[in-house]
């Protein structure tokens, strides 16, 4: 059983190189990280540090040049496209910075998307619980274009939760939101971790956002250079300064 491993995901000496020869860019250069179950981890680093690449590689959206990425104890490099897709569908949830929703589907259809792609019905109790937490019950029949930015991201978060994935990856989830909507979304993600034991990995460059996490991993030049537990905005800022970012 995969759920028996301590880590929901981990990256072992991950190297990701774009291009060849002189023009080669090492987006990841031997990064190693573990993500414990039931934890909310933020990945921080200056732009170009490889934080998005790390997220993509560990989430099965991109492949490593060398090294290993695991979801549970499944080595992602051993999977073909189809199995990788099924793994994303069943075991991973996503919240992106923008363009999270399919415009032609209603909010409800978007939330249920990973389930309907797999031809599954939602667990009614769980679904109800999510809806109550996100607070979107009266907006379910609306199309994304009719929702505010904050509502759209909450729909995306609800979608990430609905299939009860082992891990949720979020890439700047509040990046396009105003501070109030952003705070609401992050608070909701935090509750998902505390109340439902959800594992979340989030990429951000914003100390305030990162402070919602239990732990922060700092990335520089494609390597994990530092980490910090129970951050506050100020402690994050200090650490960033000391890293020279």
């Amino acid at each position: 059983m995969t759920t028996t491993t301590k880590y929901a995901a981990r990256l072992d000496n991950g190297i990701k190189t774009y291009g060849e020869g002189e023009s080669a860019v090492h987006a990841l250069n031997g990064a190693t990280a573990e993500f414990e179950r039931g934890h909310f981890t933020a990945i921080m680093g200056p732009s170009g540090s490889g934080k998005s690449t790390l997220l993509h590689c560990i989430a099965g959206l991109d492949s490593l040049t060398s090294g290993s990425a695991y979801i549970g104890d499944v080595d992602l490099s051993s999977l073909k496209d189809r199995d990788l897709t099924l793994l994303r569908r069943e075991r991973i949830g996503f919240v992106f910075q923008a363009f999270n929703l399919v415009p032609s589907l209603s909010a409800e259809e978007n939330i249920l998307l990973p389930l309907s792609i797999g031809g599954k019905k939602p667990d009614e109790d769980w679904y109800g619980q999510i809806l109550d937490t996100v607070g979107l019950r009266d907006r379910l029949k609306h199309l994304p274009a009719e929702l505010s930015g904050g509502e759209q991201q909450r729909v995306a978060a609800a979608r990430a939760l609905v299939s009860q994935p082992e891990i949720i990856f979020a890439d700047e989830p509040s990046g396009n939101l105003d501070s109030k909507a952003g705070a609401e979304l992050l608070a909701f993600m935090r509750r998902a971790v505390k109340e439902f034991g959800q594992t979340i990995v989030m990429v951000t460059h914003d100390p305030n956002t990162a402070a919602y996490a239990d732990r922060i991993i700092f990335l520089e030049d494609g390597k994990t250079v530092d980490e910090m537990y129970d951050p506050t905005p100020d402690s994050v800022l200090d650490r960033l300064k000391s890293l020279g970012g």
């Binding site: 994303r88 569908r89 996503f94 363009f99 999270n100 998307l113």
Partner: peptide, 16 residues
């Protein structure tokens, strides 16, 4: 492009 990418990311296989 982005919509199809999203669908693939959240688990739509190529056949679908």
């Amino acid at each position: 492009t982005r919509e199809i990418g999203l669908l693939r990311a959240v688990g739509m296989v190529r056949r679908q």
